[in-house]
């Protein structure tokens, strides 16, 4: 019991405290790739601390949804961090079908953020919300189908058991289904976490924003919570990607004693993914909004093909 609680606390701390560093490293790497020296990787922590100390300005036209959303976002991400296999194969809240709960926790945050974007009544907020919902509606089924392809291969719908099975039998991954599901999941990760080519996290141009447009009205500690939650979302998606498709290292570890090793393995995997993401983001341009559905439809097709490959191959 105590061991389970220790693992749960460690997992929340690793995701909650590590997520801003992940974003910071990504920004520094991107700056280096375009020839800038760039901010320090610890910059997001300084930003968050400053925001927490600042005054909150709230528009008089907003309702309770606007004030509740930052807390909903942070809470859903913290709960989600208990479901994702972060550094041990068996996360504290593992149960068969947890992937469905995970997807709907992400979607709950998206839903509230979209409402909050509409709440202040500013033109850009509404635009951001409509785009975010359009992207989420197209991205959500792909995640489920891609994970189901893996679940069918591993013959279980429990995320933890999928990770365990794949790390025990690496040959199971030597299948076209694995590659197709990976491609599908990677594209959807970009869309869900607001990265290029779907959304540009560094943009200042309101007309091209998706995620950023919804949070334009937030300030002070609310903004800090929203930024923290979106960093955690990126961290969780990358962790999920790393552990589902490259489970080696995480799968065999159990119990609190294995936590340090597990964190190291996770950090190694995330560094590789962050480098890949930074290279991708410096070399591709943002897609025109009307072409985003094509990209997401493509990723859905990959996910469906992956399920078919499981059945046929």
């Amino acid at each position: 019991m105590i061991a389970a609680i220790a693992v749960a606390v460690a997992q929340v701390i690793v995701v909650g405290a590590g997520a801003p560093l992940l974003v910071g490293v990504l920004r520094t790497l991107k700056a280096r790739l375009v020839g800038r020296r760039g901010p320090s990787p610890w910059q997001p922590y300084a930003d968050l601390r400053k925001l927490l100390a600042k005054e909150v300005v709230v528009s008089t036209t907003t309702s309770w949804i606007f004030r509740a959303t930052p807390y909903v976002l942070a809470a859903t991400m913290l709960v989600a961090s208990l479901i994702v296999p972060v550094f041990l194969a068996r996360p504290p809240l593992a149960f068969p079908g947890d992937v469905i709960l995970l997807m709907y926790l992400f979607l709950l945050g998206t839903f509230f953020l979209a409402l909050a974007g509409l709440d202040a009544g500013s033109a850009f907020g509404g635009m951001g919300s409509s785009r975010e919902v359009a992207v989420a509606a197209l991205a959500e089924p792909t995640i489920i189908v891609a994970v189901f392809a893996l679940a069918m291969r591993a013959e279980t719908i429990d995320l933890a058991r999928v990770v365990e099975r794949f790390s025990r039998e690496p040959l199971l991954a030597a299948n076209p289904a694995h590659l197709l599901a990976f491609a599908a999941f990677f594209i959807v990760m970009l869309a869900e976490t607001g990265r290029l080519p779907v959304d540009n996290p560094a943009t200042h141009l309101e007309l091209t924003m998706i995620h950023e447009a919804m949070v334009l009205e937030y300030s002070g500690r609310y903004l800090a919570l929203v930024e923290w939650a979106s960093a955690m979302k990126l961290c969780l998606f990358m962790t999920l990607l790393a552990n589902l498709f490259f489970p080696w290292g995480a799968g065999g570890l159990t119990g609190p004693a294995a936590i340090p090793l597990g964190v190291l393995v996770l950090a190694g995997k995330l560094v590789l993914l962050v480098i890949a993401l930074a290279v991708l983001e410096t070399t591709v341009a943002k897609l025109r909004l009307f072409r985003v559905p094509e990209l997401l439809a493509g990723s859905f097709a990959l996910a469906i093909l992956s399920v078919m490959a499981v059945v046929l191959v």
């Binding site: 800038r36 020296r37 760039g38 901010p39 141009l205 334009l216 009205e217």
Partner: peptide
């Protein structure tokens, strides 16, 4: 000049 290395950053909204 790379302003961001000093911890400065341009934002899209006066509330930020």
């Amino acid at each position: 000049y790379d302003l961001e290395r000093f911890g400065l950053h341009f934002v899209a909204s006066p509330r930020h």
